[in-house]
Design a protein around this nucleic acid. Sequence first.
DNA 1: CAGTGAGCGAGCTTCCGCTTGACTT
Length: 799
Amino acid sequence: MSDNLVIVESPAKAKTIEKFLGKDYLVKSSFGHIRDLVKKGFGIDFEHGYQPQYVISEDKEKIVADLRKCSKTAKTIWLASDEDREGEAIAWHLQEVLKLAPEKTRRIVFHEITRDAILNAVQHPRSVNLDLVNAQQARRVLDRLVGFELSPILWRKIKASLSAGRVQSVAVRLIVDREREVLAFSAESFFKVAGTFLVDKTPVKADVSQKFGDEKLALDLLQKCASSTFTVASIEKKPAKRTPTAPFTTSTLQQEASRKLGFSVGQTMIVAQRLYEAGYITYMRTDSVNLSEQAIAAAKDAILKIYGEKYLHTRRYTTKSKGAQEAHEAIRPSYMDKPAIEAGSQEKRLYDLIWKRTIASQMSEAALERTVVTIDVSGAAEKFVASGEVILFDGFLKVYMESQDDESDSDSAGLLPPMREGQILQASSIVATERFTQRPPRYTEATLVKKLEELGIGRPSTYAPTISTVLNRGYVLKEDREGVVREYRQHTLANGKITEKILRENTGAEKSKLFPSDVGMVVTDYLVEHFPKVMDFSFTAKVEEEFDEIAEGKVVWNKMIDDFYQLFHQKVEDALQNSQRATAERKLGVDPKTGKDVIVRIGRFGPLAQIGGAEDDEKPQYANLQKGQLIENITLEEALKLFELPRTLGSYEGKTVTVSIGRFGPYVRHDEKFASLKRNVDDPMTVTLERAVELIEEKRKQEREKVIKTFAENEELQVLNGRYGPYLACAGVNYKIPKSAEPSALTYKQCVEIMEQQAGSTPRKSRFAKKAIGTKSVITKSAAAKSAKPKSAAKKKKS
DNA sequence: CAGTGAGCGAGCTTCCGCTTGACTT
């Protein structure tokens, strides 16, 4: 038995450290926190200074039992959890739960998993820092108080099972606020003038920098150009440099993986976790951009070997993000001399990104030369400007270039042909094009994470789960939207003549963007009205300052909590007693057919439009709002249209055929059966009986082909053809057919064997697949995992 | 799978941060 027991948070870390310490040390993992507040109720003793009531988490009982056993026989127990607030608390909980005697217990910390760092840590033990632990307890208690006081108000005032919290409610608010900015935005048009000039037959593009709010003024300039000469007035060359960005943190990794690989935030973390467990990368939940000495040295070796000395420039980066606790290194490859790994394709791609970013961070800056050529127009005051950029030395750009969120048209031109001052240029064409101001961009998962990090809200371990929470609650929807076609004008001066064209472009298309739901908006409005302090974007930053003071021993933790809670609880009582139920009801106008009011509101099952009130003698008519519609901005016309469905198309085989829109989109109904309309092909408003019959027959054919095989021995057992190919179904349970077997040739005996083999696997307990509440669509795990190609769809297409 | 929309009012829901696990139709 080992004399020493070392406890760390992560099992992968335990494995590595064990190698460094040798066999006198047994290294175990706590798998994160081992205790939490009791699940039911507040878990806080209000009578006794907000004393937290802890219980060992169900999934940690086995782990704790094992640690208890090991700690009994060990002479010294080393608590090596992370060096941050949460890590300190984990150490303290271990000490309490395992009843560790102070003389046997040592608290150690290290920021990098290297032999030196660990041996050094063992040389410098300390005891658990109770001030830091108290800061964590304050954080935990505050979050419980906010969450468990606010959520029940929402159940009573808006809808059951809703939730609110310090982090999630502000995340939703960001999306709601942004959507309102988008809705309030109206694009303004202006004109940009650009010319193509010939320099020894080489075309060079040059722009007039000002915008013309008035079309006439742009045309004016074109007319003047028609009779002008163009002279190179000045050529300015300026050296420029570009420096590499810092190594990855969780947040920047999520952003780049989203931009470059099209990964969702959750997907990035799953893939990174696999890389970490395989030993390819360092820990993936970190807010630090710091690299260890050893890592920098290894990067140096790799750069020298692959790119040569010219490309080497080692640096230290400092973390700027608010509230960073820097318990770990930046995310980097474990071995810098490994530019590629053998793994799945997602793992390979993410690793490639991490390797390049890390290596680039220790490479030379790139040297550029920017050339700006100004071209005078003899008959006008405006000037054309051509700019070019050449890379004199590529430096880190050889390896890696960070992407931008807004895919603004990159007008970074390359090399300009040689010109001299005073040179007269021929214009081959001068074009005035109508452009439009751009609305604020909607958030993607990754840009939301970026914003949250900027505000100091949430932690590396919670960014992905927070997004899952707001999606699963139905506050936020991740959707694609089709754009609309917009016309724009263009005047072209060529060969002395000005011609006009009207062009069309697609604008406003969105791909995997975050939209608020109606419920998300109502909840946000309600919380902002009654709890402005908690909903303030700086609330977390402010309480973090107080937590810091607790950690420094300047403030007593339960005093801070009491100061907050006294006021907060008063507002809670006030809201419960004095606020109205929030339904977001809005009157749109009057239905011309019945003369009754048309309203929209949130009903028991989500947002709806309603004609007539409950006080009428006739029952009101109801219709669900459709995907993409919001109570906030739906018009009377749009609402009235909703009542045109269901539509009766006629009859087929003596039974009525109707068309409507249901939970899963538009469908045709006939003889108690349903057939979906084809997306992007059929429109429920215009679909004909003939087409409907086609869809019904198609569905029937599918049904006929659904059953591949049945068995006399057991009528419940069937081989079926499903969405994912053939499978086995029996008594409501589905089984996978092994790839080796031919589905149509399966015998009864073989089927029974398959079922027996798979009987052991329990049905999956889904943490992510919770049903969405109050939304018009259901978010599934697979939808979130589907990789979207970045950029392509959102880009505007000119035609 | 494709509905519902009122009112009895039981018994339930809910937070944030640490960590992985066992699921695949």
